[in-house]
């Protein structure tokens, strides 16, 4: 029987910063759940008490193994040790996590640790005897078909199918199995400052009147060389500049 391991991490919602199922790992699990007759082993390295882990169970898993490691430590050695013992045919993981370093290196490091091949950016796959047929997502919507022998590590691309809904009752019934594991402290991540992500500010231009197309163009077009650059302005100067701009754009009235 096809043995599939899925590596699941905890995501972080960009707007609220709250933990959630990581969108790409959820897609990896979705691909695994679509493989007919596969024996699925879901693995997370971290805190088994994290409630969000249940969101993965709600997708239809009976159990989820958690390698218990302290926050801020490197999960790779624990994962490699666990996977060596498990020796799955196929290992699936999202190509990049949310939170943590977000370097996208984890699948590569795991593959290296196991001495297995890795195929990145997979959007779809099916498994045969000893091999898998995979569809890779390339830039600009191109796709590439590939065939690879087991054991194989696959990183999953955002173009993979949407993960199924997590059902509350299944999430509640599923089992989280904690397994003790050792992990070295990750010096790098400990030193990083973590701030919420913010979109790059866009110049706001309101266009009154004109056709819908003109308004759309005005709202989306960027022109260079406009406006003024304030370098390290005082709070007062910055506020005044913003205020004048908003009045100029008629976002706020002057009365």
């Amino acid at each position: 029987m096809l043995k599939v391991a899925v590596l699941l991490s905890i995501g972080r919602h960009p707007a609220s910063g709250r933990p959630r199922r990581a969108p790409l790992d959820a897609r990896a699990l979705e691909l695994a759940l679509r493989l007919p007759g596969a024996e699925i082993h879901a693995v997370h390295a971290g805190d088994p008490a994290e409630p969000v882990l249940r969101d993965y169970l709600g997708m239809g898993l009976d159990r989820l193994t958690v390698l218990e490691i302290p926050a801020g430590s490197d999960p790779v050695p624990a994962l490699v040790a666990h996977l060596k013992a498990l020796s799955p045919d196929l290992i699936l993981a999202g190509r990049c996590a949310e939170g943590g370093e977000d370097s996208g290196m984890l699948p590569y490091l795991v593959a290296q640790g196991l001495g297995a091949a890795l195929l990145p950016d997979v959007a779809d796959l099916s498994a045969g005897e000893g091999t898998a047929t995979l569809t890779q997502a390339l830039p600009r919507g191109r796709r590439r078909q590939a065939e690879a022998r087991f054991p194989l590590v696959v990183s999953v691309h955002p173009a993979a199918p949407e993960p199924r809904q997590s059902a509350f009752a299944r999430a509640r019934r599923g089992l989280v199995e904690a397994v003790a594991a050792s992990a070295p402290q990750d010096g790098f991540i400990g030193e990083c400052e973590i701030r919420p992500w913010r979109p790059r500010p866009k110049r706001l231009r309101l266009a009154a009147g004109g056709s819908a197309l003109e308004r759309l163009k005005a709202a989306t077009e960027t022109k260079s060389g406009q406006g003024q650059v304030l370098v390290r302005p005082t709070a007062d100067e910055a506020a005044r500049a913003i205020y004048e701009y908003l009045v100029e754009q008629r976002v706020i009235g002057t009365s």
Binding site: G58, M59, E162, R164, Q165, A167, F168, A169
Partner: peptide
């Protein structure tokens, strides 16, 4: 459908998440 099966239609399921 929603709590036991996770079968809320597509866009609605995403909104619930």
């Amino acid at each position: 459908q929603t709590l036991e099966l996770g079968a809320t239609p597509a866009k609605a399921a995403a909104v619930l998440e």
